[in-house]
Design a protein around this nucleic acid. Sequence first.
DNA 1: CTGTTAGCGCGTTCAT
DNA 2: ATGAACGCGCTAACAG
Lengths: 335, 335
Amino acid sequence: MATVKDVAKEANVSIATVSRVINHSPKASKAAIQAVTAAMKKLGYRPNAAARALVSQSTQTMGILVGDVSDPFFGSMVKAIDTVATKQGKHLLIGNGYHSAKKERETIELLINQGCEALVIHSKSLTGQELIAFAEEIPGLVLINRFIPEIANRCVALDNLKGSYLATEYLIKNGHKQIGYICSNHDIEDTEQRKAGYLQALKDNNLPHSESHIEYGAPDEEGGELAMTNLLAKGLPLTAIATYNDYMAAGALSALEDNNIAVPAHMSIIGFDNGLIAKYLHPKLTTVRYPIQMMAEKAAMLSLTLANKEEQKAATMIFVPTLVKRLSVIPFSAN
Amino acid sequence: MATVKDVAKEANVSIATVSRVINHSPKASKAAIQAVTAAMKKLGYRPNAAARALVSQSTQTMGILVGDVSDPFFGSMVKAIDTVATKQGKHLLIGNGYHSAKKERETIELLINQGCEALVIHSKSLTGQELIAFAEEIPGLVLINRFIPEIANRCVALDNLKGSYLATEYLIKNGHKQIGYICSNHDIEDTEQRKAGYLQALKDNNLPHSESHIEYGAPDEEGGELAMTNLLAKGLPLTAIATYNDYMAAGALSALEDNNIAVPAHMSIIGFDNGLIAKYLHPKLTTVRYPIQMMAEKAAMLSLTLANKEEQKAATMIFVPTLVKRLSVIPFSAN
DNA sequence: CTGTTAGCGCGTTCAT
DNA sequence: ATGAACGCGCTAACAG
């Protein structure tokens, strides 16, 4: 691999001059630029990023921790971050947490050790304590999809409760009174917040609420199918179901189809996330929009600003979900 | 940021000793290990990756170029690569090509400049020439989902023709004789190969084949819907449709539903890829499995081996697709 | 077992 | 406008 030294020799100039033309310094003669450019091309010179990072104390790299890249939810997130990072000339180092505290911790450590000055972290398994510690160490660290009061200005999150409230309220407005809830069994904030939104909506509308209307499962298709099956087994007079997310809704749909219960004719269903699959389900799924791209963009920009030690004008970083009406919810009719 | 020098001072040893305990060198006394470890902890020392990379001439980083991370197909690919990379202690630098030659080229250059010694590249827009040049420059560069004869041992690809042949043949075996094809309008190898597989299967079974049975669209849901609509407009007596991929199949499904044509009762449909959405479609989509995880693993391992300048035992790197039978294809019946 | 030292490739003074 | 020289943080001889 050719170095500046080689290029300098080839161009009959000093390494300083080479460095200048590489970095487009104004103080470089036309002649020098010509000669050096030619030499670089001839030798196939590539600046050594490590050496650069070492001397300039900056890797120009943004690190990102997601749950699992193969989930399109995280895919969208990465894409949005990539867009803003690329625009700013930053590279992307990526790691998966796979919902394990150990893995999340290791990945964050890794990203820090690799010298990422900007960090967008999606961590559900680490404690607030631990994340706060990381945040204090790395000025450019931003948390996405999580809110920790002590470092509120470093968090970009969603109002989960409101989302679930919105969904349940929509069912209620459609005349449904017996509404079940398919809940995640993962012990994270989102689970509690979304469940709370469902309960709150019932209360605010003077509808009875009972634990028997709630079933739990893994936050995926299988979990949703299982939960729906269990819900059906109870023989409750349900006419609508709110769910933790679109995957569970998909599972519920399967269970209902297997039991010859038509959706939405005999059962309305509403999801959460408005993920990729929502529009492919049958019927197309009415759901709650999780504006993850927008949030990811915001998080990335915030991270870059913070890493740059610039002032950041305070702005709301709690996003609010909105309803996406499709075909899986219709008004309740007694017949 | 604390450096080895700081740690050395704190522990009352030389920087060499610090380096030794960091790298678990056998020649380091218990006492030294104790002292240095304590000092490192006290100072919150983190080894500087750039300095390390500079001196060791290795960044321990694997680069990967995908089309678009937000597509779960690429998500699965990245995940598989991440798994093998992590296991080998490599980090992941990622870039998106977004189906643009310019973007693909820039990203590859970027990954190389960042010092990735291993590279897994998914490029559909760059010419074979250009990719060959990159491959010659970087020993650890491996192409995925593309086959270039001149660098066959650097390619991990799928037998697209066979996949499409398999799909079409399956329809034929189910008694279908009037089979349409929904084709991509992207000008890449895959398009031609899959279309060729469809035509070949018809020929081999002495079935008539005609351009009128083929419609084109973008390789996504909208494109599939459009193509299906156009196909319907021709009034052909089709009883089955093979498609370029699952997304187009999903679009076709929508178009058919809008036109009250029941699937599979009155029209059988088969997809390609066995992507995430296949099992969520209604009816669940019969399709062709694209073993992308397996291929990505293979590509990552190959890349690492090559980057390590080890011998690589020749092995088949053209994967063969298989049928995934679900509910969107049933035997043809005249009524 | 430990310390001293050179140098990885590059950006950046400071002279000239 | 240009070049010589230093140092970024670390590893790897080498000498002790």
